[in-house]
Design a protein around this nucleic acid. Structure first.
Length: 272
DNA sequence: TTCCAGGTGGACA
DNA sequence: TGTCCACATGGA
């Protein structure tokens, strides 16, 4: 299988903090899992090629990498905004992924008061303990455990024994909601504020986690997750409201570029 | 050893 | 409605 994704930068996607299981295999090769599927990608200059997949569907990975959205046009408009020009250039090639909703929900429940490194470790541990072993091009990996599996484990053990701490019960709460028929399907059909309200019914899901799931799994580009980094950015920039008014329905994607810049740009003295 | 991390729930005013 | 604090644990 060969799927070509134009103007995509895998390293930036990996460093953008939106997903926690992408692995770099060598200088230009990446392993990309999503729920119970996975693919192998190769960076070829400015483009990315999917060279192997667990699922025989071009559409699955084109949707995952948000291939139908015009990022070039967004980056152009950001470049024309004096407040975002540097941020746009620095993040060129980022994509807002459409991740597996269940994996995304659990990952962000786990994320609270943890570092990115600690989140990755915990999520990986959960997969190794309760996911299914699988193999693609000689690479052994573990699928993300299903809601049913995590529900049963907690009911038997009372803990996931995966360094989740107090978040154990939050993950269990989420697994119970997944027993409702078409829980995620219903969320995808709702308007943004209703969808957010629905997700926040889950114990352990607040504004931040709900917005991350709506943005990174359901494509609600107006969802704007505010974490410590974005909060720092907003408080340091009086013009934030102007940016917000300019990009309104796409502020979630703009947020991703800002987050990537805040976390990865080396010149920390520079005001952004 | 100490501090901080892609937050949230619950108590209280 | 807004503010304050406890919460488990890994990583730097």
């Amino acid at each position: 299988m060969d799927i070509l994704l134009k103007n995509v930068d895998m390293q930036k996607i990996m460093d953008s903090g939106q997903c926690f299981r992408i692995k770099k295999l060598d200088s230009d090769k990446y392993f990309v899992p999503s729920g119970e599927e996975a693919c192998i990608c190769v960076q070829q200059d400015k483009d990315v090629k999917v060279v192997a997949s667990s699922i025989n569907s071009e559409e699955y990975w084109k949707h995952y990498f948000d291939d139908s959205y015009n990022y070039k046009y967004l980056e152009e408009r950001m470049s024309n905004c004096m407040f975002l020009a540097d941020i746009s250039t620095f993040g060129k090639g980022i994509r807002r992924l459409n991740q597996d909703p269940w994996e995304c929900l659990v990952s962000y429940i786990i994320s609270q008061r943890k570092s990115v490194k600690a989140i990755s470790t915990a999520v990986e541990k959960l997969c190794e303990m309760y996911g299914k072993m699988s193999c693609i091009q000689g690479i052994t990996w573990y699928t993300f455990p299903t809601a049913e599996k995590l529900k049963n484990i907690y009911e038997i053990k009372g803990s996931y024994e995966a360094s989740l701490g107090y978040r154990d019960s939050y993950v269990y709460s989420a697994s119970l909601f997944l027993q409702e028929e078409d829980f995620f399907e219903n969320i995808s059909m709702l308007p943004y504020y209703e969808a957010k309200k629905e997700l926040k019914r889950i114990h352990g899901v607040g504004d931040k986690v709900a917005d991350c799931v709506l943005l990174y799994s359901f494509g609600f580009n107006q969802a704007f997750p505010v974490d410590v980094w974005i909060s720092r950015y907003i408080s340091n920039n009086d013009y934030f409201e102007d940016v917000n008014n300019l990009f309104k329905s796409e502020m979630g994607i703009v947020q991703l570029y800002i987050y990537y810049y805040m976390r990865n740009h080396k010149d920390e003295d520079e005001e952004v």
